[in-house]
Design a protein around this nucleic acid. Structure first.
Lengths: 329, 329
DNA sequence: TTGAAAGCGCTAACAG
DNA sequence: CTGTTAGCGCTTTCAA
């Protein structure tokens, strides 16, 4: 390992002078500057950020806890977030909570141990307030993403409620009379208390309209597709909205298997293959999300911010899945 | 910030005793153990891993440089890798090289500064030998993934060559007479010198057979789809193999747009939506990959290991894309 | 303009 | 069984 001492002795200066020269801080003579840089370059010196962190008590790393690794959406935003962090000279550590409180706490402990400057997470439960408190006590900014569970922390959510209302209204406009919403059932949370709640938006749209509807709460992981199948078969909806693209794929599978291609379909979380197969979606605004995360990291305020990002309905093929009618699976 | 001093003074012991107690090292009396743990728990103490790292000169973090964030394959393996690391008490830092040497070097510098224990990367060029040398000089294990570019470092690759040969043979068996391989064109590498080379496997399959064939080298990023389109239109293949699922999606788009659904199609990098739409693929073995990465991290040997992981051909619908014939895009 | 010394939080000898 | 001391690599006073 090459240390600043090595650089200093090769340049015939003290470590502190070398440090200042390399970081261009304070008054350094031209000759010293040059010889220090030459020595550093010859030795291939790269400052040990662990030591810098310890000394300066600031870590230029952000932790990101992904709740559901099956949901491509989380990965799709990661690219933009990492790019943004990179532009700010920061690193990204990722961890997975697998939608359960125990893993979530483990993730927190590990990130707190690293003294990251901020932790972004999608809460899976309401029992981890204590570890969040510890994180804050250690000077870590904690931000919940996508689910507004804890009242007293920064929050960034996509406006799923309004997105779902728009989707339902669109299906009604297209003439649907029997709507099914496949919403999320959280294992460690009272599903109907989680905000934003897609069902709320859905109900606003169907309320007072001449339409039948059903809401199915479907788990994010370890789900039973038979439940989904029997709900669709039993209710025979002519319009379906799914809350995640994982559930969306399962619904599409069933639709195709049963040749129900006259049904209209909209799913949350737009992505590349949905575009490709002309399936309508509720699209989150990754750009604003990334920008908001950047602001949250960079601003140093004590007030708690609750931010809601609008979504857009992306309509394709009048929301039909006719195009999939000859697919066999 | 709560430090071990705080814990120690609350438990009325010295910092070193507290440290030993918390890490269950050496001989500690029952009472001391209890009072230290009580103090730590009351204070919500979590050891600062930055300081531990500096002291012990070992970092339990692994860096992963993703070359192409458009390719879902990289994300799909990340989940398994993070899980494996977690079981070994390690963290994962991710960075993006965006398929170019400059960003790649930046990633390296940042990861070296963190003194991660290992860096896994997919090389985008052959000019970064110097920074790799510096990484090694700092005690960092460097492993190239998926492309065998640098001779003197650990290497883990999927056997794309054999995978491509099998795919081509399968298409021939199914009666194809005009095969097109859409292989990768690397911007900063001599494409035909990169190993594994899918074209090599492809040529082994078609060699001496009564078959026409073409190979198109197509860039990973900033590509021009018109090139792809005109190649397909000009050559009119009855069988196509694509080297990545990014190119695969583009080829499928063109096939559908031109209603060329009698063509047979196989693509590299199997994934969820390919399964869903019954498209045949060459599937990498994520399990073995993760296992191999684990071994590489955990074993401490000086010898350079070159590991090649076999792939599997996953055939669906006789490789036809007939099922997509009514899709409109 | 530079160097000496102290210290970030933690652990590992070594003494007691 | 426990405390003292030194030091990981770096930065930052402070003094020269």
């Amino acid at each position: 390992m090459i240390t600043i001492k090595d650089v200093a002795s090769r340049a015939n200066v003290s470590p502190s002078t070398a440090s200042r020269a390399l970081r261009r801080i304070g008054y350094i003579s031209k000759e010293t500057h040059d010889s220090v840089f030459r020595a550093a370059s010859e030795l291939g010196y790269i400052a040990n950020s662990t030591a810098q962190q310890l000394k300066k008590n600031t870590v230029k790393t952000v932790g990101f806890i992904i709740s559901d690794s099956n949901n491509e959406y989380y990965f799709s935003i990661l690219t933009d977030i990492q790019k943004m962090l990179n532009e700010n000279g920061m690193n990204l550590i990722i961890a997975f909570s697998s939608e359960n409180p125990v893993d979530e706490e483990t993730c927190f402990r590990s990130l707190i141990a690293s003294r990251v400057s901020a932790i972004f997470f999608t809460p899976t439960n309401k029992q981890n307030a204590e570890i969040i408190r510890i994180a804050k006590k250690n000077g870590i900014k904690v931000v919940q993403l996508f689910r507004d569970i804890y009242e007293d922390i920064d929050t960034i959510i996509n406006d799923d409620e309004s997105g779902c209302r728009q989707a339902a209204e669109e299906l009604l406009t297209l003439g649907c009379k029997k709507l099914l919403l496949v919403d999320v059932e959280y294992r460690y949370l009272e599903s109907d208390k989680v905000r934003p709640d897609r069902s709320t938006g859905f109900l606003q749209a169907v309320n007072g309209r001449d339409v039948q509807y059903r809401i199915l709460r479907f788990p994010l992981v370890d789900y039973d597709t038979a439940v989904l199948a029997s709900e669709i078969d039993g209710f025979s909806p002519d319009g379906i909205i799914t809350a995640t693209n994982v559930a969306g794929l399962e619904v599409l599978s069933h639709i195709i298997r049963r040749r129900l291609t006259s049904v209209r379909f909209i799913t949350f979380d737009d992505n590349r293959w949905l575009q490709f197969f002309s399936i309508s979606a509720i699209r989150q605004n990754t750009e604003i999300l990334t920008k908001t995360i950047e602001e949250t990291i960079c601003t140093d305020t004590d007030e708690i911010r609750k931010i809601r990002i609008p979504q857009a309905l992306v309509l394709r093929d009048s929301c039909t899945v006719e195009s999939l009618k000859d697919i066999h699976i």
